[in-house]
Every structure is written in C-alpha cells, then in structure tokens.
C-alpha cells in the first residue's frame, strides 16, 4: 500500500449535507440512496397506509365500497403512485444487489448499465401500473 493512502485519515465520516450537495454520486450511488429512501418510505408511511386500506376493505361491504371511493380521489391516487414507484424501485434495485452479491455484473460498465436499467424499468413499471390505476 502506498504511503499517501496510508496517511489519509480513516475512517472518514460524511455529513448528510455533504452527501447531498458536495458529492456528485455516480449512477449506482443514486440508485443506492434511492433504494434506502424507498425502503424507509415503504416502512413508514406506506406499509401502515396499505394495512389500513386492506383492513377496511376486508372488514365489510361498506368498508370495501368506501375504500373504492377513497381510491378515486386524485390525491390518494398520487399517493398510491408514489407507493408503486417506491415498491418497484426497491424491488428492481434489490434484484440488482442480489446479482451483485453473486459477483455478476460487478465490472464498472455493466454495473452502471444495470443501475440505469433499474431506474428505467422501475419508472416504466410505475407508468404501467399508474396507467392501469387511472
């Protein structure tokens, strides 16, 4: 190991503002941080929201009809679209990480290509389910 590398202060901690504004992440880095953000959003609020809707829709006929009407509200559909994106992105990025864990596609070029594919496929799936929804 070179002495220059040895002199660097390690470990290096980065603040959140530094990550957001100073460091220009490569595409796999962006996919990674979106994987975290989507995962956090799926835990809270989306899981709670979906459980609430599942609960009400299965409880009674009236509950089912009220959830049906609730899902027709534009703001609710927008929220559901956000959920669909978070789910699709988390799933697609997750599949990418599983293949990376198997040492497949770990070279720079395929890794960047698969990161781009994750973004494109998850947005395409969101568009498809959004179209189905409307």
């Amino acid at each position: 190991m070179s002495s220059a590398a040895a002199k660097k202060k390690r470990p290096k901690y980065l603040s959140l503002p530094a990550i957001l504004y100073q460091i220009r992440l490569p595409l796999p880095g962006r996919v990674s941080i979106l994987h975290r953000i989507s995962g956090a959003l799926l835990v809270m609020p989306f899981a709670a929201w979906l459980l609430y809707m599942l609960d009400a829709s299965l409880a009674s006929e009236a509950g089912f009809e009220s959830i049906k009407g609730y899902l027709d509200l534009p703001l609710v559909k927008l929220g559901l679209l956000a959920f669909i994106w978070a789910y699709c992105h988390h799933l697609c990025a997750g599949i990418r990480y599983l293949t990376l864990d198997l040492n497949r596609g770990i070279e720079l070029r395929p890794a960047r290509a698969s990161a781009a594919a994750v973004l494109v496929v998850s947005l395409a799936l969101t568009a498809y389910f959004g179209w189905k929804l409307w």
Binding site: V43, A47, A48, L51, D55, L58
Partner: peptide
Amino acid sequence: LLLATYLGWAIEI
C-alpha cells in the same frame, strides 16, 4: 414496536 404492530395487524386482518 412499529414492525411488530404491522405483523400483529396483518394477522388480525
């Protein structure tokens, strides 16, 4: 607590 609540809620549903 949140995750345990989700699991319990799912079983209840």
